[in-house]
């Protein structure tokens, strides 16, 4: 298994995305704490999709670079996009009244993080964790 995905359409899919990514991380050999970090990050990203874009997709993929193995989570939606990216990356910023710890939390849980968003088009977040 090198690639898997869950469509996020309703709130149950948040749980499905969590379970898929936890299993994926476990199989790659991530420890308990990293499994929890990855699972939590996925939960936040899936919830963001559900809250802001209504639907989207969470993809998990095995990655390799310079002899290291890891996984990348791609959260993609065609929702409203993020108007102020700098603000969205600030701790404590939320437009949903406190649901979701936001993107800075996800960034701290993972190793690599990138975001690409266009108003009216959607958002793609890619975040990776490497096996140590």
């Amino acid at each position: 298994m090198t690639r898997s995905f869950v469509n996020i359409i309703n709130e149950w899919d948040i749980v499905a995305a969590r379970q898929l990514c936890r299993e994926f991380a476990k199989e790659l050999g991530f420890g308990i704490v990293d499994q929890a970090r990855i699972t939590t990050a996925v939960s936040e990203l899936a919830r963001n999709i559900f809250l802001y874009a209504n639907q989207g997709i969470i993809i998990v993929e095995k990655i390799e670079k310079d002899g290291s193995v890891g996984l990348i989570i791609i959260a993609e939606d065609h929702g409203p996009g993020i108007g102020n990216l700098a603000k969205a990356m600030e701790d404590g910023y939320s437009t949903s009244g406190g649901l979701g710890a936001g993107l800075p939390g996800v960034k701290r849980l993972m190793d690599d993080f990138s975001i690409d968003s266009e108003v009216g088009k959607g958002t793609v977040i890619k975040t990776a964790k490497w096996l140590r």
Binding site: I32, D91, A101, L109
Partner: peptide, 14 residues
């Protein structure tokens, strides 16, 4: 609360 849960909560900023 499990160690892994405590770690992720704090890192998440909660």
């Amino acid at each position: 609360i499990q160690p892994a849960v405590a770690i992720t909560l704090i890192e998440l900023g909660i």
